[in-house]
Design a protein around this nucleic acid. Structure first.
Lengths: 237, 237
DNA sequence: CCATCTTGACTTGTATGGAAGTATGGATGT
DNA sequence: ACATCCATACTTCCATACAAGTCAAGATGG
């Protein structure tokens, strides 16, 4: 769901609905911080940019409001929301709770086919770790999604995925702050515990893994204070 | 977020945006099964019913698609989605994971003011338990939200809330199947454990509480098979 | 009788104009 | 100099018209 390269240059596919395409394009542009937090973004402007009318743009905006990425102030303008610090923390909290339970399920059964698939993914993660952080984010997402699928919680992952957009915005702000080697190490531990059918160990490893962002988050906020909400946000609805 | 009485009769407030109002009205009508699963629901029809144009209706539809309540088949029609059995199971799974962690947090501190507030809510739940099941659903939602707020996870609750719509559709199908007295008993246990600062007990009580729906769910599906997506009954975790 | 085509009444998707609210900057009056 | 008013250029929101796809019923040709 993440990852778009050079979304500026994208042109729309006429056979598919414009509003749906705009939805994913704009989401990517926001998550990658191509569209800067707090910047104004008008319907007409975007419409002209992609050579469509205002209506599909508007409909794309609406979905992004629900994801917490945009804020529409009626008759005033539409703005890219700053990163909501407490929303990121809560999203992380939810992820930890859910994924902890997921690995508990997996460690209970320990499917050998799954383990070998995961180990193969670990190698790929190693390969890109030092050269392509953006690709690592992609593989990292795929790793966690694989776990959810294996546990039979496909729908659960869909919800986590929408949470992730908040967290991913932070990651795209500063690749350097994220110790990719450490994260891969965590992944390896998780796979090991699943293989050993150690439920407690797997849960602890997953929780520690997802708590890692708590270290870098304050650093990044100090680095880019303008990108963060400084106070409590209002309820959107 | 749940609860609307007689949504058919609602008329729109001209001072507020029509699309936002339609959003909540239609959501309630779907969750309460006033709009039947699998029924067709066209933009023009709804627009005429509420005396607005198609556009605000359309925008309301879009948000409901994201919540899994509607399905838009382009150039074909818009339909109220049947209740997705596995989606309900997954929503329940996520809730259990998150709320288990929440009560662990609460039992760690055990705020006396919170405990007394919860006990007051328990009395209200008792009062309506035998006469007004719809009101009980409302109070039940408020109870869980209070827990999330007390744990400082307001944003986390917003996400759970969107999950709940799937589960609430089931509850509105058959009030009788839900043992309200049992659920209140669970609530009392949870409050007790929080007061005693028993993290493990609180977690177990919460998990058991949220597993209760697993008992009634198959019964209800047998009762109203037409309202459910014909997905294969997956292993019960 | 049966297969095929056509027509027309639906549907959602998009374009465009205008209504109403908001911010801004300049003119005006004191 | 300063406060107030007003014109103007924005914004979102809504209404309307049109485009394009879908589906079913009926006409047509064999």
């Amino acid at each position: 769901m993440v990852v778009v390269i050079d979304p500026e240059a994208w042109t729309l596919d006429p056979t598919e609905a414009a509003s749906r395409q705009l939805r994913t394009i704009l989401r990517s542009r926001i998550v990658c911080n191509d569209l800067k937090p707090n910047s104004k973004i008008s319907e007409t402007e975007v419409a002209q940019h992609y050579d469509v009318s205002r209506q599909p743009v508007r409909e794309a905006f609406i979905t992004l409001v629900r994801e917490g990425l945009l804020e529409i102030r009626p008759q005033r303008g539409t703005f890219v929301r700053k990163i909501d610090y407490s929303a990121v923390l809560d999203a992380r909290f939810v992820r930890e709770a859910v994924e902890a339970d997921i690995v508990k399920l997996l460690a209970d059964k320990s499917d050998p086919a799954l383990v070998s698939e995961l180990r193969s993914q670990l190698k790929q993660q190693e390969n890109v770790s030092r050269t392509n952080p953006q690709k690592f984010i992609e593989l990292d997402e795929y790793f966690h999604k694989t776990l959810a699928d294996a546990a039979g919680k496909v729908n659960a992952w869909l919800h986590i995925d929408s949470l992730k957009s908040q967290m991913d915005r932070v990651r795209f702000l500063s690749f350097e702050c994220f110790p990719i080697q450490t994260l891969i190490g965590h992944h390896e531990q998780i796979v090991d515990f699943i293989e050993k059918q150690d439920q407690v160990g797997a849960e602890i490893a997953m929780r520690r893994h997802l708590q890692e962002i708590l270290k870098s988050l304050p650093v990044i906020r100090k680095l880019c204070p303008d990108y963060f909400e400084n106070s409590q946000p209002m309820s959107q609805e």
